[in-house]
């Protein structure tokens, strides 16, 4: 069935089976392969994208449910010129190794820091407990997210 929504600021329209997940739609129909699929049962968080600003697991959402929504993927949080402050912080702290879970951490951390730029380490750990990383042991990821908070704080006019 036909579905229209917005991905990374651009309108898209796809014709999909109802059973197609948003994750597979993004990856295989829209060729946005930065969103990774690690479990397909809503545990690992690698497929996290933003839907209308909320971090959600795109393997636990049907593409047809995205009708009319604004979806942002890791590609939408990146640019060609330079790494974003969050990405720079991940690189500085070596908060990634194989990189497979990384897009899910970037989208989740971005949602968290956008809403709660003052979050503390416990809150970061609580929120990131929905994303599994097998390489880093998380210490560097938490450091990277905490270190990136300043970039999300609203500058006072």
């Amino acid at each position: 069935m036909p579905v229209k929504f917005e991905v990374n600021g651009k309108p898209v329209s796809v014709d999909v089976e109802p059973r197609l997940t948003l994750a597979d739609c993004l990856r295989h129909h829209l060729r946005l392969t930065g969103t990774h699929v690690g479990c397909e049962h809503g545990v690992c968080g690698a497929c996290t994208v933003l839907v209308d600003g909320d971090a959600v697991r795109s393997c636990l959402m049907l593409a047809v449910q995205a009708e009319g929504a604004k979806v942002v993927t890791v590609e939408g949080l990146s640019n060609d010129d330079d790494l974003t402050p969050l990405q720079k912080s991940f690189r500085k702290h070596h908060a990634l190794q194989c990189g497979f879970c990384t897009p899910g951490f970037i989208t989740t951390a971005h949602a968290l820091l956008t809403e709660e730029p003052d979050c503390d380490a416990d809150r970061v750990r609580e929120v990131l407990s929905g994303n599994i990383c097998r390489c880093t042991g998380y210490i560097a990821i938490v450091e990277a997210v905490l270190d990136a908070r300043s970039a999300y704080k609203k500058t006072t006019p």
Partner: peptide
Amino acid sequence: IERREDLRFLRGRGIY
């Protein structure tokens, strides 16, 4: 040294 691999992984540009 910060890793050169990170530039693609962090932007979702790794190719698995």
